[in-house]
Write a protein that binds this DNA or RNA. Structure first.
Lengths: 157, 157
DNA sequence: TTGCAATATTTGTAATTGCAATATATTCGC
DNA sequence: GCGAATATATTGCAATTACAAATATTGCAA
């Protein structure tokens, strides 16, 4: 059997890339007064405002309990607000405030720039191919989890 | 300007893929009695035994202070040992023990299987292309950091 | 050679994280 | 329509994490 070469091991490559991007962009975000998880929430809400907490957790890849506390902090800062009362009284929906939206708008250019840097030297086709492949990997792993734990979703649907 | 679509944003795609893989493989690792960070250390040592702690931190994308404590735990469990005394008395090198090596050998098949699952439906060429692109992204971001903080490496060289 | 900046690791410490338990609301079986 | 199982969110809590400070060693320059 061939030797195990970590430097060509996909989980390794994905992880180190993710950590690199996260720590580097985290520095940028600090100047805006938000943490990386907070930015993820803002970006997710920018995509679809008024999401329920569990959906927001799935979209941001943040554990619901962790997210709940992050939302406390963001609410404290006035970036989001929680609302109850739409039909099902169990669900809480999260909404961007005007301040949150303004902040998101300020961050987006940096986020775009950051992606440009990450994709420096990539053609549009290559970038699209990379993204499509990451989505395929994500779905492959998600499918495995659903198969392993068939009843009631293990985590992040 | 075009709207910001998080679902096609590279950092988002990389992060969610990494988190998915990490949580899923973490479950597998628990059965072997190790955590994900510990596995990363074992895999890094399998690649090159006797690395210094700072190099190990760079390779595993774990902060040195965090790594120092992870090594405490791994040493406690008898998987690795620290050695001092090779020339520079400041540096500590980390070495896999026989037990650590045996554990690594047991985990590797699962790790391989896991990558196969993640890459299900990928041709060999596609998989190679994905890995190569992830490396390019990593280098792009690393280059940005070195440029931002030219003196003495901000983090993980 | 002495002193001082740089390097390598560890330790202090506060914040973050995630699992488990809880509280509340809903739905399904009967 | 009642009660058990399910769903949603929050909270308790111990472990993990990361930044900063401390410690130890080295190398260089005066």
């Amino acid at each position: 059997m061939t030797a195990f070469d970590i430097t060509r091991y996909l989980p390794y490559l994905v992880n180190r890339t993710g950590v690199r991007i996260a720590t580097a962009f985290g520095d940028v975000l600090r100047e805006h007064g938000v943490t990386l998880p907070m930015w993820r929430v803002l970006a997710a809400l920018d995509h679809a405002d008024g999401q329920r907490i569990s959906d927001l957790a799935a979209m941001t890849s943040i554990d619901v309990s962790t997210l709940s506390r992050i939302l406390d902090a963001m609410q404290e800062k006035g970036f989001v607000e929680r609302r109850r009362g739409g039909g099902d009284a169990r669900v809480v929906t999260v909404h961007e405030t005007a301040a949150g939206l303004a902040l998101t708008r300020r961050i987006i250019p940096s986020a775009r720039h950051y992606e440009d840097v990450a994709l420096r030297g990539f053609s549009a086709e290559e970038a699209a191919a990379l993204k499509a492949m990451l989505e395929r990997v994500y779905r492959n792993v998600a499918a495995l989890e659903d198969q392993t734990a068939p009843e009631g979703e293990t985590k992040a649907a």
